[in-house]
Amino acid sequence: MEFEKMNQQSRRDFLKKFIQGSTALSVVLMYPVPSFSTEKDKKKKANTNYVYLVDIGKCIGCGKCVKACRTENNVPADFFRTWVERYLISFQHEVFTDSPKGGEEGFQPKKIKGEVEKGFYVPKLCNHCSNTPCVQVCPVSASYKSPENFILVDKERCIGCGYCVQACPYGSRYISPNSHTADKCTWCYHRITKGLQNACVQACPREARLFGDLNNSKSKVSKVFHRENLMVLKPHLMTNPQTYYKDMAAEVI
């Protein structure tokens, strides 16, 4: 009697397991379908619209932002999550551009052919494009867009193929020689989620860098966003960058 019961029990167990197993198998078989469930995604999207504004007219090229970024994010030497470019344009329309050490140590005076007619600094960083080519090409879903539209890299899954580095039109990505994975500006996701400012924004003594949520009417960016003459880098590529530049000259690449 006892034995029979046990036998029954185990049979039931087996049946249960079999059904569970086959359900799991069918789920597994159906799994590799990209999720088009918009309903679900909508829930996951945060109600924020973060943008980064760069005011070229204010930048003095001190490079404190590059330094702050390197300390905050442990950026390996010779690679940059943000950098500052200097443009010097002569009367003959000769455009001299440089970024020694990413501008980290500031800029030394530079002689160019002819008088400098126009000069300015342009801080660069990841544009966190809405229509980003880097996430599109990542084969293992290691590059992803967070619910707040930050473009981030999962260092545990990245295989280091370098396709995203090739796909980024702005040179914002690199393969870190330390982790052998793709690395890039995170807009200081870890600081923003803690209620802090991005390291580069905080380090800027001239408020040339601004970051905030456009949906928050109290934020500084929401106050200037529609009033200023803003441009994005390489707009013809339709990547829809979320890093905007104020008063950007045509020479900026």
Binding site: Y144, S146, E156, H190
Partner: peptide, 12 residues
């Protein structure tokens, strides 16, 4: 989304 969810928490 189509990525490892814990990566987000690790980053944060």
């Amino acid at each position: 989304g189509h990525y490892r969810g814990n990566a987000l928490q690790e980053e944060a």
